[in-house]
Amino acid sequence: MAHDAASHGGTGNTELVRVATSEHRLARYGLIGLALCFVGLFLVLPLAAVFTEAMRNGPGEFFTVLSDPETFSAIRLTLIVAGIAVPLNLVFGIAAAWAIAKFEFKGKAFLTTLIDLPFSVSPVISGMVFILLFGSHSLIGPWLQSHGIQILFAVPGIVLATVFVTFPFVARELIPLMQEQGTSDEEAALSLGASGWQTFWYVTLPNIKWGLLYGVLLCNARAMGEFGAVSVVSGHIRGLTNTMPLQVEILYNEYNFVAAFAVATLLALLALVTLVLKSLLEMKYSEQIAASRRH
């Protein structure tokens, strides 16, 4: 950023005599204009559309939709699912990062690739694998049925699909960060007599806390917003197995556009809060967020 100031418009001269390592002023404005148009068309307008369409019939109808019991149960289910899936993947992420970043062992690269696997699987397939696993045609399906255990078209299935989809988020954030930090801090703590858990709580965790928060933030956004995987396993039972994104779909397909967009507003607000927190973390703790720019 500092060299920007020096090369563009830092002094009056640069406007008259162009620095050889910057573009012509017109090219610069052209590119900025092009980029802004693209961002406006593909990012800002869709976001604006969500809020405008939700308020189309005034705030009265907006709040009526939001106080509907069905909306309420969708919000509740979304919170429950994220509340289970995120902590599970948080524990997994820390364990995976500890094993991969602090130790050298055979097959480490392969393990890292396996952890990234859910990113290259279509959300629909992520949901479908659980249908094949627990459905009535599967090996354990009949056993589950005879014991009255409901996994598909119920909360457990939705949680499983969400865990699958959000599996890599925390680990992916922590692995490069902990690799960068190395093991010398932990070695010092251990040599001073700290136990393994003490070392983790008082040395490692403070070192990685912002990176961890960053990973949790992204994991949570995806967990609350997941659509494809959850849609396949949920069965779309109104008031029971509909998460907020599914509720949006149902309302939209019923041509109840204002209601669909009203629920969508909540999800869009969640996205905005996520983006703001993410930017704040990147600004304040950039040195502690390793992969912030390397998704």
Partner: peptide
């Protein structure tokens, strides 16, 4: 700074919301 943050919107915005918003446009 705002534009930079906005670039991540597709990561944060649930796909169903993006879908109905783009269709409306």
């Amino acid at each position: 700074r705002v534009i930079d943050a906005m670039v991540d919107l597709p990561f944060a915005l649930p796909t169903a919301v993006a879908g109905i918003a783009l269709t409306t446009l």
